[in-house]
Design a protein around this nucleic acid. Sequence first.
DNA 1: CGCTTAATATAGCCAC
DNA 2: GTGGCTATATTAAGCG
Lengths: 88, 88, 88, 88
Amino acid sequence: MSDIGHNSGVAGDELRQFLERIERLEEEKAGILSDIKDVYAEMKGRGFNTKVMRRIVRARKQDAEKRREEAAVGELYCHALGIGDLLD
Amino acid sequence: MSDIGHNSGVAGDELRQFLERIERLEEEKAGILSDIKDVYAEMKGRGFNTKVMRRIVRARKQDAEKRREEAAVGELYCHALGIGDLLD
Amino acid sequence: MSDIGHNSGVAGDELRQFLERIERLEEEKAGILSDIKDVYAEMKGRGFNTKVMRRIVRARKQDAEKRREEAAVGELYCHALGIGDLLD
Amino acid sequence: MSDIGHNSGVAGDELRQFLERIERLEEEKAGILSDIKDVYAEMKGRGFNTKVMRRIVRARKQDAEKRREEAAVGELYCHALGIGDLLD
DNA sequence: CGCTTAATATAGCCAC
DNA sequence: GTGGCTATATTAAGCG
């Protein structure tokens, strides 16, 4: 191999591409996290109780999850009953 | 030091005690996990759809969690309103 | 319907039995997990580094060969990326 | 009550605004997380060891943090010495 | 055996 | 600044 750098061929290039994509996304993620933190800080500056707010946000997330979960159970039920494989 | 083993004094003894306690508990845990697996296997042997069962168990666990979470939010609300620190 | 409750016959009873067995075992499991947590907390209170302890417990559980193999792959990747020896 | 909805005045409106901003950001965050997951999945599809990749990404993140910290200290020192920004 | 979920460990954040 | 707590990342298990 010629002295094209320290990588070991084409796999190295591909790896580097993946690494760049991931680190780019990680940067974006860090930005969002920072924004969220800022909003809570602003709230607190406006005199709101952020602990309560965090709980609410979490509860709403859990609620959405639970809905999805129940829908999944329902679907399984329907399937199991419809095709008669509650006994599989 | 006399030939009491390869430890380096009293801290070594204490560490070993902790390690034993932990590994004992880990063994118990492994036993329970194995038991759960066995129950599902038995169910399947009896002709039941275990995937549905797992979903149900999970949904019920989530339901309990959500209850707890909502209770926590309610408590925070009461506290916030009661002492008047919705604005903290 | 007779006084058998809201289930639909004998399969329902059997299902309920299984559900109870599973949830009972899940409770026991939760108890053990809690105990393990307590031991680590106690260790920390005694001044030990629990992160290191966890690694030791895990290492004693798993195989050494796999670790060696992963280390080799990591070295390879770092070399391919031209970023020498970030890992370990 | 006039047609302001079910809230209890201006604080309610402000709260709702904050809630919307937060949940909007949470959605964006979830999108990014999903994208990252996809990249790793693609890598795995191309035959790479993603576990090793994750370790590399993490190591580089820590390294970057340490760099930033050292840069900050360097700036501080330069300022304290009255020799502005010798270090990049 | 891979690949999708569940369990566990780590890390970041907030309050004290 | 420390310690608990929540969220995230990693590891392991279970199923097809």
